[in-house]
Design a protein around this nucleic acid. Structure first.
Lengths: 162, 162
DNA sequence: GATAGATGAGAATATTATTCTCTCTCTATC
DNA sequence: GATAGAGAGAGAATAATATTCTCATCTATC
């Protein structure tokens, strides 16, 4: 279970994972060791999945985002399994969701330009049997956060006092 | 400009930013110092924007993703500016794009459940004047990567020899 | 009110980042 | 072609940070 302090720690680490443990402790009102132990536990418990570097899409020629809506006639486990496996190894596909409603699957694809998207698209449909695909292009990324909202985390009564 | 070694370094850091510089150097075939200097430069140049902790959505009660397609009648600079400002401070909105085609804007919203989404939705339309909204619910997140594809980065001829 | 279990604190140690100094190699210029 | 200079690279020395260890304190429970 997560308490108020854990949540504060997560809030900080979601925004900047380079801040020293001692400083995080200071901010949340803990000394280094207990703060460090809490972070360890959050990692062990799988709340923190990993720490990564976030790059600027413009600087690595990944300027264009395309949302690809996919409809399939194959609504079976087997088909999805194969589809998911193929997608997992395609670096251009950055997000992949199974949807409710009209569309069956939604992909977020990142490429440098429209030509590259077209190439990607051809490769995709050659590898998997898809009934219907529709692409929507993003002109601008106005917000991109890796931080999840933490205001919905069920909070445990605070642990140690202080 | 980025060369082959920089790209390898970025590839590693995008997946795991906890690996020591010395180890990264070993993997790309550099000693600690030059590897460290390259990472510094990538940060200064803004290629690396930041380092963050990635959390497990299920563990922080952020299980439901909703894609919100927005159409507006207000196609002016002023309206967008205000809209963007409001959205920037809403933690539930994790991504925000200006689109081409039918839809004007697309949001990815993260909430614990449908009720919370409804609450969010009401708050949104009360704060901003929107012509038309349509929501698509994700049942499952099959892939989520923060790593961008690096195979499109224009490569400089390799620097130092080796 | 004694005691186990959980949490916190500070000092000691280990690991990692950062700086410093030096060397090598490629390039451009004469 | 010889040669100065910039741009990397390497390894040792230092500084910052993470991690471990030991002990103190609080709380809930009997």
């Amino acid at each position: 279970m997560i308490d108020r302090l854990d949540r504060k720690i997560l809030q900080i680490l979601q925004e900047d994972a380079t801040i020293p443990v001692a400083e995080i402790g200071r901010r949340v009102g803990l000394s280094t060791t207990p703060c460090w132990r809490r972070i360890q536990k959050l990692e062990e418990d799988g709340v923190i999945l990993r720490r990564v570097a976030v790059l600027d899409p413009r600087k690595v020629n990944a300027k264009v985002t395309v949302f690809v809506s996919i409809t399939t006639s194959q609504h079976n486990e087997e088909w999805l399994k194969r589809f998911a496996e193929v997608i997992r190894d395609v670096p251009e596909v950055v997000e992949f969701y199974r949807m409710s409603g009209q569309v069956d699957y939604l992909l977020r694809v990142v490429v440098p330009d429209i030509e590259a998207y077209d190439a990607f698209y051809k490769r995709l449909i050659s590898r998997i049997d898809i009934a219907d695909v529709s692409s929507a292009f993003a002109m601008e990324q106005i917000k991109y956060a890796t931080a999840l909202p933490l205001n919905y985390v069920p909070l445990e009564k605070d642990k140690g006092v202080a």
